[in-house]
């Protein structure tokens, strides 16, 4: 008697566990291409914390494509040169060199940090900003955020609506090396759209029978998939 019922209990319990596990797995099911927390090492140890955080450089200064193009884009290396033509190393090293030069009673030498040297090399320049034989070549940045090819995402539309970059990319200004903050799953996109579509302040206006721009948050499939 007791043996039988204990078997039954085992049977039932295992069924229950299996069922709960199934539900848990399906809820936690993640497509393989969501890589929250992905933070690959970059060819140049560029610090967003320094540039976007401490120096408060606007995101759109470098990622200018986000304003007008579907793609935010990785800034051309020449954008780096806007500053780094003159800023060739950290302040500390410069001060140290100046002090040393003063000690040795000579002109301070040009100090180029290892990372900025990589930028110069990509521009096809040497430390003295003279063209080298190797010529320019792009810096092979490793892509952090990647959407599948069947998703059409337009940065400019979101940026022009005043959506903060951090809404999707997280606190980049505090990231030494950029990681993927959001999971970029469809549900994540859709839920944001849903919330905003339900916002009574965002309503559609039709003036003279014309759709007024920027006033409609859509949950149409075709907003992203075509």
């Amino acid at each position: 008697m007791s043996a039988r019922s204990s078997h039954s209990r085992v049977f039932l319990a295992s069924g229950l566990v299996l069922g709960l596990a199934t539900i848990a797995v399906s809820i936690e099911w993640r497509p393989l291409n969501t890589h929250t927390g992905y933070a690959p090492e970059q060819p140049v140890a560029y610090s967003h914390r320094l540039h976007a955080g401490e120096l408060e450089i606007d995101c759109l200064y470098c990622h200018f494509g986000a304003r007008t193009s579907p793609r935010a884009g990785i800034p051309p290396t020449s954008v780096c040169m806007n500053c780094h033509a003159t800023v060739s190393s950290d302040f500390g090293s410069l001060l140290a060199e100046r002090a040393l030069a003063a000690d040795e009673d000579r002109e301070p030498r040009r100090i180029v940090s290892a990372e900025i040297r990589k930028v110069y090399a990509a521009m096809g320049l040497d430390d003295e900003l003279q063209p080298t034989d190797s010529g320019p070549h792009p810096i092979p940045w490793v892509q952090v955020h990647d959407l599948p090819d069947f998703v059409a995402f337009d940065h400019s539309v979101h940026v022009s609506r005043g959506l903060a970059c951090a809404s999707c990319h997280g606190p980049v200004q505090s990231m030494e090396r950029v990681w993927q903050e959001s999971d970029l799953s469809m549900g994540w996109c859709v839920n944001c759209h849903r919330e905003r579509a339900a916002d009574p302040r965002i309503t559609l206006t039709r003036e003279h029978g014309k759709l007024q721009p920027g006033e409609h948050v859509t949950t149409d499939c075709v907003a992203c998939h075509y």
Partner: peptide, 9 residues
């Protein structure tokens, strides 16, 4: 119809 990360859809 299983729960999924598409919204869920």
């Amino acid at each position: 119809p299983y729960p999924n990360t598409r919204g869920p859809l």
